[in-house]
Amino acid sequence: MVRTYLMLGLLVLGTMTYAEYRGLSLMRYDEVKNVPKDIRNNPGAYRGLYQRYYFHK
């Protein structure tokens, strides 16, 4: 029992340390790769995945 809790505690602390150091978050988001650079000139051409998810799902 003590060993189990020791392992569990170390795992929790390790996860917490990693999550805090790397700035993890529970926020829902989408990652999009290779967004064309001309989006800066024509922002309306970009349709984010999250926008579609939010309005149409």
Binding site: R28, E31, V32, K37, G48
Partner: peptide, 19 residues
Amino acid sequence: MYLSLALINQDTGQAYDFG
């Protein structure tokens, strides 16, 4: 008010898309 936001890396084109 609803904000569709995308944080976009200018060099790699990687975007973090959220609302």
